Amino acid sequence: MVSELWAHTLTWADVDPARHRFEMDADASEELAGLVAPLLPSPEVARQERWRSLHPVTGFLAGRYGRWACGWNWSVGEGDVDGGVVGVWCCSSHSVTSPDATASLVVEALREWRGWLEDLAERFTALTPPGNTPMTSTDPWYWERACTRLVTVVADRTQADSGWYGHCMQVLRWFLAYNGIDEEQAQEIVKNAVGGRFGSWIAPDVLVVDTVSSRFASGLGEII
C-alpha cells in the first residue's frame, strides 16, 4: 500500500476532526455500505491476497472522507495493520465474508475509528495547558500529566497488544502538533521520551510511564 494510505503515517492535520467533517446516520451508513460492497474481495480469495484486495476500499474511503479514513481497519493486535484500536474489524482473513455483511462491518469499523479520533480531540483539549500553547506554560506538570494519561488510554484501547507502542507514539506526536509543535520537533521529543521503553504484549508499568512522561516534559522544556 502506498504511504499516503498507511495509517502509521497519518499526522494530526490528516485526522483532526475539526478539519474533516464526518456525519454518518443510518441512511448514510446504508448508502456507504452499498458503495463499498462491490469493491470487496470474495471470501474465496487466497488469505494472503485478501489484505491487498482491500486496498480499493481504503482508497475509496480516503477519497470520499479524507486521508484520516485509511485507519478504518487499524485493528487491535496483529490485524491488517499492526497495533491499532479498532475492535469490530479483526483482519481480512477473518472479517471478509459475504459482500453485504463485510460492507456493513467496514462502515462500523470506520465509525469506530472516527469515534477514537474525536475522543482524542476532546482529550487533547482537556489536557492542553491554559492558554492553548506550550509557550504560555513552562510548568512540566501539565506535560507529564498529559503524557501519562495519553499513554494509559492508548495502552488500554490497543490492549497493549502487538505493536501498540507505534500508535501510542503517534498519538503523543499528534498531541504536540495540536499544541503547535512542528512535526520534526514532535518526532524528536517523542522518540527521546520513549526510547525503546515500550514493547509488544505488555502494558508499561507505573515506573516506565513516569519515566517517559518526565522525559516528554523535559523535551518540551528545551524548546519553550
Rank of each mutant, 00 (worst) to 15 (best):
F22K: 02
G83S: 13
P134K: 02
K191L: 15
T211V: 11
A69K: 01
A103I: 09
D16K: 02
A28M: 03
T58W: 03
D205G: 13
E108M: 05
L32Q: 00
V76K: 02
L120E: 00
V81R: 01
E44V: 07
E122S: 11
A160C: 12
R52E: 14
H55K: 08
W201R: 10
H55L: 15
L40I: 01
P129C: 11
K191S: 13
R173N: 04
F216C: 08
S3P: 08
D205F: 13
G79K: 04
C91L: 12
K191A: 14
A101S: 09
C147I: 09
L176E: 12
C70V: 04
P204H: 05
E4I: 10
G180T: 15
A121W: 01
P38Q: 08
W141G: 14
W201P: 11
R114F: 01
G71H: 10
Y65I: 02
S3W: 14
D210A: 15
A33C: 05
T133M: 06
P134M: 13
L117T: 05
L105T: 06
D80E: 10
H167Y: 08
T138G: 13
L35S: 09
D161L: 03
E23C: 08
F60D: 06
D182K: 01
S95C: 08
C70A: 08
P99S: 05
W143D: 15
T125M: 07
V209F: 08
P134D: 02
D25T: 07
C147N: 05
G63M: 02
C70T: 11
P38S: 04
E31Y: 05
P43F: 12
A103M: 07
V88H: 06
S104D: 09
S200M: 04
